[in-house]
Design a protein around this nucleic acid. Structure first.
Lengths: 245, 245
DNA sequence: CGCGAGCTTGATGCCGATCAATGCATGTGG
DNA sequence: CCACATGCATTGATCGGCATCAAGCTCGCG
């Protein structure tokens, strides 16, 4: 169906986990120095994913997890009838593919929203290794648990917030994650369309656009297409807290 | 805050995993006979949770997972402002508490919707054991992954379905899980209120009630308060598939 | 028996979907 | 370099589904 390009062996340009600037965000968190090379040994290949291409698709056989080195992805579910739901946006240091463990097949599509690069983590090797390294095991479990908690947060958003509250929560989440990665929290470029934001938030693209305009009128954001400047983060937070109701 | 009743040592009425009628649904799936007793050794205590009581609350320290032996639970998030979201309903054989792994604190409330009984699974012991038993490790990972996939399904529901479609999907999910447990798929008693269903589905209780009435008028369900009879499961399925649109 | 929690049903209004037109940026080919 | 196409975003007008408000109703229980 889609052309999967061959993974690239890293050497001689191997970027080891221990020298990766994402090691404080990614899988190796909390792994001791002397155990790190065990992990590096299984995370040996990398893959480039051009913008618009799938990293994997729903139904693909599951064999590996992917750690995002650079770039930006969305994951989305497309049910047989045309319904489509973006279930998340992922950035550097985050893990893709956890959905595949349960059934040995991926259950969603992961699409690159910009030219990206991922580390391939063969899942069975990760299982084997995490039986030996309890720190790795612990952190892997934490990652899965946090994904569950994150999803519950999205359910809260979809189930009980109104349009502007949803967009405010989304923007806060995005800026926080960017800040964690050392980017400015006040100036950012959206990598996704209004339609994709809308799908994630359970809104139509027009509603997303209107909410952005409203925020601009209220002096909360400065919006120029995908170029966003956050002028009043506190106001966003207040919206999420539902102070108005 | 809430009175946690002391766990009960099982013996002399110990119900071992190996003789539990939920072993094909619960944590021990795929565990070899000779490894089972290792698991039984750590799942040694049980706890009764009367209807309405919390098994745990958001903010409680996390130390154990809980396998439901009998009964029915809801998990819900309550954000500081009065927003409230039911994130799931759990029945016998399902695991509660996975949300706590990531932060060592529970992030939601788990409330018994009827008198229930759970097996206590001390988490660190489970981690230790799953480093030795790869079958246990594998299945535990599958359980977590499936929870993530389930949550994505709820996001699809909340983000893109209309009221009757949501309720249809909910009823189908419920009957399927009951069937798996050997109950009739056509006759069931709801353990939760309309308000709780509504919270889970992102609807108000009146809307849930109206949808039930509509299904009754259409001959799809027979509804007498919480007593439900499914007359036309195919029609429910057709609704979920969005045939009308 | 009467109370109260939960359920049903009706009337009304609002938020966000839908439909439609225009604007803006990027890219391509003449 | 301009003309035009294309994809995405904005904005307006209208519509509809669900929330909200408000009565009654049912059933279990003290």
């Amino acid at each position: 169906m889609h052309a999967t390009q061959p993974p690239v062996r890293l050497d001689p340009f191997k970027v080891a986990c221990s020298s990766c600037n994402l090691r404080e965000l990614c899988l190796p968190v909390g792994i001791a120095e002397d155990q790190m090379e065990r992990l590096e040994a299984i995370v040996a290949t990398r893959r480039a994913v051009p913008r618009g291409d799938p990293l994997f698709r729903s139904g693909d056989a599951f064999s590996s997890l992917y750690a995002i080195r650079t770039g930006f992805f969305k994951t989305c579910l497309s049910s047989e009838d045309g319904r489509d739901q973006v279930t998340g946006f992922q950035m550097a240091g985050e893990l893709l593919g956890l959905d595949g463990i349960g059934t040995d097949r991926h259950t969603c599509d992961a699409i690159a929203l910009e030219d990206s690069s991922v580390c391939i983590i063969p899942y069975h090797q990760l299982e084997d290794l995490s039986r030996e390294l309890s720190d790795l095991q612990r952190h892997f479990h934490k990652i899965m648990s946090r994904e569950i908690v994150r999803d519950h947060g999205v359910m809260l958003l979809l189930g009980s917030m109104r349009a502007e509250e949803r967009l405010a929560a989304f923007m806060l989440n995005l800026t926080q994650r960017l800040r964690t990665r050392g980017f400015s929290a006040s100036s950012l470029v959206l990598r996704m369309t209004r339609e994709e934001i809308g799908s994630y938030l359970g809104l139509k693209l027009e509603t997303v656009s209107r909410a952005f305009s409203k925020f601009q009128d209220d002096g909360i954001l400065e919006v120029k297409q995908r170029q966003i400047r956050v002028l009043d983060a506190d106001a966003l937070q207040a919206l999420v807290n539902g102070s108005s109701c």
